[in-house]
Structure formats: C-alpha cells, structure tokens
C-alpha cells in the first residue's frame, strides 16, 4: 500500500467509485419509476453521440464529446416518446427500435470516417479503459500534497468528480419533488410540481451520469451501475432515504472490490495479467444484487405468501 498503490490504483478506484455513485443516484428513481431500461437506451446512444461530436469538431476533446453524447441521449428520449405516441407502441419496443438504430448509425459513421489516427474505437467505447487512468507523477501518499504532481492527475478524475457532485446536488435540491413525483405522480401534479418536466430532467441527469462514467467504465457496464446497486438497495429497506444510502454503499463497494479483484485477483491465482476492471465492477455489483435477492430483508413481493415465495 505504498507509492505503487497511489500511482496505479488510487485514481482508477476513485474514478470508478465516483462513476458508480453518479449512476446509482438517478438509478434509484429510475428503478422505482419502472424506467430502468432508459439507462440501457442511454448507454447505447452514447456511442453515436460521441462519434457525431467528433465528426463536427474534428477533435477528440472531452467537452464536445460530453455534449454530443448528452445531445444523443436527449434525441433518443424524444424519439422514443414520439414513436411511442405516434405509433401507439409499448415503451420497451420503442426503446429497442430507437437505441439499436442509433447505435448502428454510430458504428456505420465510425467505420466510414478515418478514425484510425484518433483514439476512438468501438471496443473501447463498449468496455471502457479504467486501468489506463493512472497517475504517473505520483511518488507516494505525499504526492497528494504536492501541487506539481496533483496537476498531472488524469482529467477524467476531475470530470467525473464534478459530474458526481452535480448529481448529488441535484438530488438534494429536488429531493422532495423527486420523492413525491416518483411515488404519486397525480398527487405531485395536484401540488403544482411539474412532474413531466421532472421526469425529463431525471432522464437528462441519468444521461449526464452515463456520459461522464462512459469515459472510465465504457457504455455497457454503465447499465449495471444504473441498476444493480439501487436494485439491491431496494431489497434492503422500505425507506427511500435508507435505500439511497444503501445504493451508494453498494456502488462504492462494487467499484473498490471490482477494481481490486481485477487488478490483483489474477495474481492470487497465479495469473500475470490483470483483467478488465470495468467488467469486474459490473460482475461484483451483480454478485451483490444476487446476495440481496437471496437474503435481503425486504426481498419479497407484498402479498406473496412464504410458501409461494419459497416455491
């Protein structure tokens, strides 16, 4: 736990943790509103958004790409809603149509443009690259106090920390509205809360989380971060406040354990190479959800008898 840890593991663990928390917070509300798969749709359309942003600006820079991805997420949400209403199609199928089409368009544009000179490929977008986000200049814990070394921290850390802070702030500011609108939309409207705008805002927030986390963990694993920690938390408690805390704890646990297992796990079994940290984080969050499904104190459905649940 010395210099090497600070240099190679500290920043990826922090980035993974921030990403997991940023996704888990909106995920809580998405799960309760039965919109969990919006996260799925958003994470798929991040790729075309980034590709189009690259086409327009011609540079691989963080801000245009974040904007492109967020724009794609908003376009996707509008298209899903339009198809759902115009075609009278159930939301799941409308989502399936929209995000697969946009993803296909993204892959096509990517193949059509000369992206060999830029660091932009499909597999990277899907799998993420947490391991590469190391802090080269760090020489030990004391580097945390050294301004010159701190200046060389990976940009991703700053971005995801800011995104995470924004999402925490939004959750706190809109807490009462979110809580009321999530459980009783009609009551929320009667109180004058703009429930529809709030729902759209929630989706946009989820998109911001997905895009910011995408840098580090890739687009598909974002889905696991949206759903697994909040879903596991849902099985632990009946109070929203407690559920949020549980989900943050589970998200942190998944990120830390996932990174440690990915980086050091293979060494314990005699392997030499680390495995994908993003994939391992998703797997650990899945294990946590599995344990919650088996042993969570509030796992049962209300109204299901013990015998039926045991069958």
């Amino acid at each position: 736990m010395g210099a090497e840890f600070v240099q190679f593991s500290l920043t990826p663990i922090l980035i993974g943790t921030f990403a997991a928390i940023a996704c888990a917070l909106p995920g809580n509300f998405l799960i309760l509103r039965r919109q969990a798969l919006i996260g799925d749709a958003i994470s798929h359309v991040v790729l075309p958004g980034i590709v189009v942003a690259f086409l327009i600006t011609g540079i691989v820079a963080a801000i245009p790409m974040l904007l492109g991805a967020a724009g794609a997420a908003i376009v996707a949400v509008i298209l899903i809603e339009a198809i759902r209403r115009l075609g009278n199609i159930e939301p799941g199928a409308a989502m399936g149509v929209v995000f697969t089409t946009m993803f296909a368009a993204g892959v096509l544009i990517l193949e059509q443009t000369d992206t060999s000179r830029v660091h932009l490929d499909v597999e990277h977008a899907l799998m993420g690259n947490l391991e590469s986000l190391v802090w080269f200049r760090a020489e030990g814990w004391h580097s945390l106090l050294d301004p010159a070394a701190l200046a060389t921290l990976p940009d991703e850390l700053g971005r995801i920390a800011v995104a995470c802070a924004i999402i925490v702030a939004l959750t706190l500011v809109f807490w009462r509205w979110l809580k009321i609108a999530t459980f009783d939309e009609g009551f929320a409207q009667a109180l004058g809360i703009p429930a529809a705008a709030l729902g759209f805002g929630l989706v946009v927030t989820a998109a911001i989380a997905a895009v910011a986390a995408f840098d580090a963990v890739g687009s598909i694993i974002v889905i696991a971060m949206f759903i697994c920690p909040p879903a596991a938390a849902r099985l632990m408690t009946n109070r929203l406040e407690h559920q949020i805390w549980w989900s943050v704890a589970f998200a942190t646990l998944s990120a830390v354990l996932g990174y440690v297992f990915a980086g050091y796990g293979p060494l314990w079994f005699g392997g030499e190479n680390a495995v994908s940290a993003a994939g391992m984080i998703a797997a650990v969050s899945g294990v946590i959800l599995g344990l919650a499904c088996l042993y969570g104190p509030h796992r049962g459905r209300v109204g299901v008898g013990k015998e039926e649940a045991a069958a």
């Binding site: 799960i31 039965r34 919109q35 969990a36 798969l37 996260g39 799925d40 799941g92 899907l126 799998m127 890739g218 598909i220 694993i221 974002v222 889905i223 696991a224 971060m225 949206f226 759903i227 697994c228 879903a231 849902r234 099985l235 990915a262 190479n273 680390a274 495995v275 994908s276 993003a278 994939g279 391992m280 984080i281 998703a282 797997a283 969050s285 899945g286 959800l289 499904c293 969570g296 509030h298 796992r299 049962g300 459905r301 209300v302």
Partner: peptide
Amino acid sequence: TRLAEDAAIGAVLGVFFGLGIVLLT
C-alpha cells in the same frame, strides 16, 4: 423478488456483459 422485470433485464444485461468483458481480457 419485488424488483420489476425491467430492473431484472437491466441487471442481467449489464452484469453478464461485464463478465463477458472480463473473460475476453
């Protein structure tokens, strides 16, 4: 469990894909 089907779909999707990526590496 009390989780809705969409949560189950998303969880299985993300976790299995993550496992797959681990195996690919």
